[in-house]
């Protein structure tokens, strides 16, 4: 964490009076965080956890006391025990879904980055492509998934394509908008320094797009797992999608729900990963937040 290992700016300022007094007190060394940050994060999560727990309890009571057959609505406890008993099969079917999700998402990210850069350099390409991209978002996945499987078989490829189909659009829109958000003053200054278009893209437009990129990443990564499951539902040898389908056909809603829980956990884990990557990829964001939260004492 910055501020503890860096030479403390405050002591330096107080030690030798700087050229101008107004700078004093503008920067505080961050207070000892860590534990307090963790407890405050937990405190923020508490209401959501409580609501979720209440929902589960209500469901459990309704399923047990309402006299409803477990083949119609299994209680959460039954879902949990059955998930544990079938853990080998569940794990066996989760791995291909993870693989399809990550492979599809990686392809989508790479394609979105390359194409967004091209669009940034060739505005005409943007006008040619964006209507097509928007049209691609109007396709009903339910209808498209079986066709893609029909065309490309039961292997990894149709899954990658479907994951890419649902995640590519939010990513490229986020990147293109991010480039456009570059401050004109920074661009003009770089141009005055003698930087060419490519240098300006690399030094200013790409970093400016980072907040937009991560916003798009958090949205599209939640679509990715759903896209993979849709593809598997339409036809696969293994995977959570096909597992749900066969559990449903065997009148085992408890196992369907167990697979749903696994896919939700997977999505949440990927979302958390995206937030974590953003946290480390954009350290200046944290610095900005901290200095805004802290009072700037003694500043005229």
């Amino acid at each position: 964490m910055r501020g503890r290992d860096a030479p403390s700016p405050i002591s330096q300022e107080r030690g030798e009076p700087s050229a101008i007094g107004e700078s004093r007190g503008a920067v505080q060394s961050p207070p000892l965080r860590g534990r307090s940050a963790l407890t405050s994060a937990l405190a923020k999560l508490a209401p959501a956890a409580l609501a979720f727990a209440l929902l589960l309890i209500a469901w459990e009571l309704y399923a047990r006391l309402g006299g409803i057959a477990p083949t119609v609505l299994p209680a959460p406890s039954r879902v949990l025990t059955q998930a544990w008993e079938n853990r080998a099969a569940l794990a066996d079917n989760t791995l291909p879904t993870i693989r399809a999700t990550l492979a599809g998402f990686a392809c989508s990210l790479l394609a979105a980055f390359i194409l967004s850069a091209l669009v940034d350099f060739l505005p005409r390409l943007r006008r040619a492509m964006f209507p097509l991209l928007i049209a691609s978002q109007t396709l009903p996945l339910v209808a498209i998934a079986p066709l893609v499987v029909l065309w490309f078989g039961f292997g990894l490829l149709p899954k990658i394509l479907l994951v890419a189909l649902v995640t590519f659009f939010p990513m490229i829109v986020a990147l293109v908008e991010g480039y456009a958000a570059t401050s004109t003053e920074i661009s003009q200054m770089l141009a005055a320094m003698g930087a060419g278009r490519w240098r300006i893209f690399w030094l200013a437009r790409l970093p400016s797009a980072l907040p937009y990129f991560f916003a798009g990443l958090r949205i599209s990564i939640t679509y990715a797992v759903v896209g993979a499951i849709f593809a598997e539902y339409a036809g696969a040898a293994k995977g959570l999608g096909i597992y749900m389908l066969s559990a449903k056909n065997n009148f085992r809603p408890d196992l369907v729900l167990a697979a749903v829980a696994v896919s939700s956990a997977l999505t949440l884990a990927l979302f958390g990963l995206a937030v974590l990557v953003q946290h480390f990829a954009m350290p200046w964001e944290r610095a900005g937040r901290d200095s805004k939260v802290e009072p700037s004492e003694g500043r005229p």
């Binding site: 030479p7 503008a26 350290p283 900005g288 500043r299």
Partner: peptide, 11 residues
């Protein structure tokens, strides 16, 4: 002392 600071940390 501010070489390694981020611009948002400056007045």
């Amino acid at each position: 002392g501010f070489e390694r600071a981020w611009p948002t940390e400056l007045s």
